[in-house]
Design a binder for these strands. Structure first.
Lengths: 72, 72
DNA sequence: CCGTATTGGGGTAATTGGGGGT
DNA sequence: TATGTCCCAATTACCCCAATAC
């Protein structure tokens, strides 16, 4: 198989689109954008300027409890 | 200590396929292609005409900060 | 009632995603 | 199977403004 270059640092966890986060919080996508602008939510930008949010962070904010991965 | 993480640090480091870059940015592979066409991402061409992207460059664009290794 | 903060809606331009065919 | 390329619809960014809650 392949020689696995670097794996852990690469997969920082899944990223969510503004629309997906909006569904989870039951708010308008624009509201999610405002949260990002206000620094309440850390965002990764695509090269086109669109935002992507870390699933783990979103879940923690949703549940109030940090997530743990299965198998650990 | 690990001497060899990648298999052959000949040039720059590992190369990623459009699909792999797409996963990291949470976008469609075609979007990655557009970034290459727009000059936002430097690409290496295979002999078959397909693109390969530098992992280091991708990671820097993802985090906004150049990567640093422990021990440097 | 007034001032502040948060949210949603409208409008426009850019980016992105999906389908089709190579 | 994945990718390169073209076309079109959906999503998003960014602006301003109104309604709501406290």
């Amino acid at each position: 198989m392949a020689i696995n270059t670097t794996e852990a640092p690469l997969s920082q966890g899944a990223l969510l689109t503004p629309g997906e986060v909006a569904v989870l919080f039951r708010v308008d996508p624009k509201t999610v954008t405002r949260w990002a602008q206000a620094g309440k939510l850390s965002a990764v930008r695509t090269l086109g300027g669109h935002r992507r949010f870390h699933e783990a962070e979103v879940r923690q904010l949703l549940t109030g409890v940090p997530q743990q991965r299965a198998g650990e």
